[in-house]
Design a protein around this nucleic acid. Structure first.
Lengths: 333, 333
DNA sequence: CTGAAAGCGCTAACAT
DNA sequence: ATGTTAGCGCTTTCAG
């Protein structure tokens, strides 16, 4: 790879001028042409590492998500990416697997790589953002919050929980259970609160079950619920993947999803043949991403306004055919 | 962030010694202790940017995939990540969207960021790997190949196509159509060849349809096939997502997937309620990733053996219940 | 085994 | 508007 010195020599100017040309600073038309020609002839590409060492910052933002195989997060990632690209930033996707250890490692990498900022969906309430924040790097929490004072963009989770649960009662179900994510994550607990609030006034016993956020977790929890003496006749899951597991458990138990109510906070992924009776509370995943990226980029650009928390509202969705689902989804892109 | 100079001063040694300690080079026990203590006291983390500038290479590998929302590629990505982590490498995920322009941009970034190597699933047969290769950075093509002379790991696509098609004939279907991906991608064309080979000896007319690799493409293609004068009674899709679309189209047309045969090269994602009759030819996505990563890391370590192409075999899968599917999947992790 | 010193390629004062 | 120069923090000869 050629350096600015070689370009400068070939163009007959100083290295500084070459640098200026590539940074859009004031340089005469003529020298500009000279430099560009020389650069082209040498196939010169600025060395970002050197630039970064000098400027002590890069045009890269880190995005830490808990599960790269969950379509909710890939959609969110796309949102971040789209927005970042517009501003010439690249995004590095880091999969934390909900493991605080991995999360910490990635945070350190973000710091030592001089990344411009980080967007994260914390694996636990106890992420240590101290190091990265004290370095002056902006941080935005997305989807999940953290007690650490940083910008955040989240969903109105309680309303989402309420909406999902209400839809089930409206459809005539009476014993509405809830399959929640792991304790200690505010987002899922808020959804549970929503469920509890609706349920409290209508039934006595509480069917609450905690599980991991994945398909197997939803399956196990549903299986347990069905084994109860008085099993529920409907269930709310606090994320998309657990709903898939719950549906599987129902099918296995020979229970038609038409007779058993299922509502999910989130969109069921790739449901070719989802029963029309499944209620989905749509989460603006991609929008979450673009919003977070916008906030982060503003901070990177020097915006110093007080900390903000943006709350996005989930859209209560009536059951729809799979095809309608997709039509909607595609058009949203 | 503290620098080696500050650590050196505090420890009473030279900067070089600090560097040696952090690189595992020979340093006396005593000074080693001194340095580590000082480093700990200052919360010193080596500046990777400076190191990279000096060493002209980083411990980062770029992974370019066509569609981050396709579970096949996220599984592949996990494989790459797992393997990379073991060797202390980080992986940067780049979503090309099957767009040669984006692909080129990411390739340039990989070069100017001094990434150690790149693993890519080319968006087209005409990627220009010249720049990156001439820089001496190793490249491994995965899933899809490229005419450029680089290492590759692929799937035995023709056999996969044959297996999917045969399974349909064995099940008694006689008019087996094929929904293929875009022309110009060897992987999908090889699968089509497999289909054609099986079909040629058993039926006269050919039901071949090209589509994009996504759900909407599969849906449109299936809709067209069903509108034919003599529609097929079964279909093979050359990837996972198009099968989802095809199933949707069938459901819409009021055709039970039990009476219409469906076989996919790839695993249907998150199929909570997949009809047991869908044949899936399992692709070792994650294994593809670990293999590619292993090859790349060997090259990075200086391995200079001749170019290799590893061909992985797809596993012909009998239809299974959704639950069995997941049990299998989880245990594979 | 350890220290001194020379860069890696770029940017940003400071001059001119 | 342009050139000169001094680093950014680290690794790596080269001496000792």
């Amino acid at each position: 790879m050629a350096t600015i010195y070689e370009v400068a020599a070939l163009a007959g100017v100083s290295p500084a001028t070459v640098s200026r040309v590539f940074n859009g600073l004031a340089v005469s038309e003529e020298k500009q042409r000279l430099v560009r020609d020389a650069a082209a002839r040498l196939a010169f590409t600025p060395n970002k590492t050197a630039r970064r060492l000098r400027k002590r910052s890069s045009e890269i933002i880190a995005l830490l998500i808990p599960d790269i195989e969950n379509p909710f997060y890939t959609a969110l990632a796309r949102g971040v990416e789209d927005r970042a690209q517009e501003s010439g930033f690249s995004v590095v996707l880091c999969n934390t697997d909900d493991d605080p250890g991995k999360e910490l490692r990635y945070l350190q990498i973000a710091a030592s790589e001089q990344m411009a900022g980080v967007i994260l969906s914390p694996a636990s309430d106890e992420v240590d953002l101290g190091a990265i924040v004290s370095l002056g790097r902006p941080v935005v929490a997305v989807d999940r919050t953290t007690p650490y004072p940083v910008d955040a963009v989240k969903i109105d989770n309680r309303s989402a929980g309420i909406a999902a649960t209400k839809a089930l009662f409206d459809a005539g179900y009476r014993r509405v259970a809830c399959i929640a994510g792991p304790a200690g994550i505010e987002a899922t607990e808020d959804r549970v609160h929503g469920w509890r609030q609706v349920v409290a006034s209508r039934m006595r016993e509480g069917y609450l079950r905690h599980a991991n956020f994945r398909v197997d977790g939803g399956h196990a929890a549903m299986t347990h619920l069905l084994a109860l003496d008085t099993p529920p006749d409907a269930v709310v899951t606090t994320n998309n993947l657990m709903a898939v597991g719950a549906l599987q458990a129902l099918v296995e138990a020979g229970i038609s999803p038409e007779t058993f109510g299922v509502a999910a906070v989130g969109e069921l992924p790739f449901m070719a043949l989802a029963p029309a009776s499944v209620v989905q509370v749509r989460l603006p995943a991609r929008h979450l991403g673009t919003t977070a990226a916008t906030m982060l980029l503003e901070r990177i650009a020097g915006d110093a306004q007080p900390l903000r928390t943006v709350v996005l509202r989930a859209e209560v969705a009536p059951p729809a055919s799979p095809r309608e689902e997709w039509a909607r989804k595609e058009s949203a892109l």
